[in-house]
């Protein structure tokens, strides 16, 4: 496969610059920008981590960017027991929606993308057009009628109400189509056919392993999209036991009666909800980048 030429190491590249100096005024200006913008990006998260350790009084009376009484154990205990421990239920639900919805979505999208890439059939252009059209109109526009139809057919206010619509990912189909076109050589498929492999076996044993890095990227995008989804669960779920953590925290935040009393729980709950995603992001960063530049996936 043709790939982008490997980059030389940055150190080598830098040493090639005659008289280049990291601490030249021009570079210092750039560095200053980076430092300021990084403070901007990290301060809210720092605030969240610090304030997850405070009780309700300290939240309002102590300086926001430093620790007061270290109260995280009590906050966690209160968070996990508030309303019969519904917070943990929300976390479980979110994981369920994002993991299973994401996996199902990835698999469905890759099958469709593979078919669009490797077969000639009637209606191919039509399906391609549908995929693209759906990618250009976000599903959020359709959240209202989805809710009405789900109510009509009795799946509103069930796990399925959130899981099933989450499987649709037209952008994922498009990406899968691109990945399959450029990373699976047609000769490989022809050879497998000559050897007598069935079409499904070719897909399962040959195409899928090659597409694996691309699938991780498609999964990650959809995982985050589901984790972030707010309007759809807000519409289709009425039982708090089915809420994802997003929606649960929002309902706590909206309740003016309870609001003032459980500020510390909202803060601690937000911190805990963000933590696993940040850890996941840091570890899987290369998949994000490979999803955004295709060159590294084809290699």
């Amino acid at each position: 496969m043709a790939t982008v030429p490997a980059r030389q190491s940055r150190a080598h590249q830098a040493s090639g610059l005659i008289g280049a100096n990291t601490w030249a005024p021009k570079n210092l200006l750039g560095l200053l920008f980076l430092v300021i913008i990084t403070i901007y990006f990290l301060t809210p998260l720092y605030w969240l981590a610090i304030n997850a350790t405070k009780n309700n009084t300290d939240l309002f009376s102590s300086f926001g960017l430093w620790i007061a009484h270290f109260n995280i154990a009590q906050n966690l205990a209160d968070l996990f027991s508030h309303q019969d421990g519904i917070y943990l239920r929300w976390i479980e639900n979110t994981v369920l929606y994002a993991v299973f919805g994401g996996l199902a979505s990835t698999f469905v999208s890759v099958m469709a993308g593979y078919a669009l890439s490797k077969y000639v059939f009637r209606g191919r252009r039509l399906v391609f057009g549908l995929v693209l059209g759906a990618a250009l109109v976000p599903q959020i526009t359709l959240a209202l009628p989805i809710y009405l139809l789900e109510s009509k057919y009795g799946i509103a206010n069930t796990y399925w109400a959130v899981l099933l619509p989450s499987i649709l990912n037209p952008l994922g189909v498009y990406l899968a189509q691109v990945y399959a076109s450029s990373s699976i050589p047609n000769e490989l498929i022809s050879a497998a056919r000559v050897d007598g492999a069935s079409e499904f076996r070719i897909f399962w044993s040959i195409a899928l392993p090659i597409l694996m890095p691309g699938m991780v990227t498609i999964f990650l995008f959809q995982f985050v999209a589901i984790w972030n989804n707010f309007l759809l669960p807000l519409l289709v779920l009425s039982d708090p036991k089915l809420f994802p953590v997003n929606l649960g925290l929002a309902t706590w935040n909206f309740d003016p009666a309870a609001h003032e009393l459980i500020y510390n729980l909202i803060v601690t709950g937000s911190f805990l909800a963000v933590l696993p995603l940040i850890v996941m992001f840091l570890f899987l960063q290369r998949f994000w980048r490979s999803g955004l530049t295709f060159g590294s996936v084809t290699g």
Partner: peptide, 30 residues
């Protein structure tokens, strides 16, 4: 090529994307 800690700066800028929109709004609301 010349600036130090580029990997750190890149991660720091990307981290907010991991924060769900609802949580980001609650957080900035504070």
């Amino acid at each position: 090529p010349l600036l130090p800690f580029r990997r750190f700066f890149r991660l720091a800028a990307f981290v907010p994307y991991a924060v769900p929109g609802v949580v980001a709004a609650i957080l900035w609301g504070y």
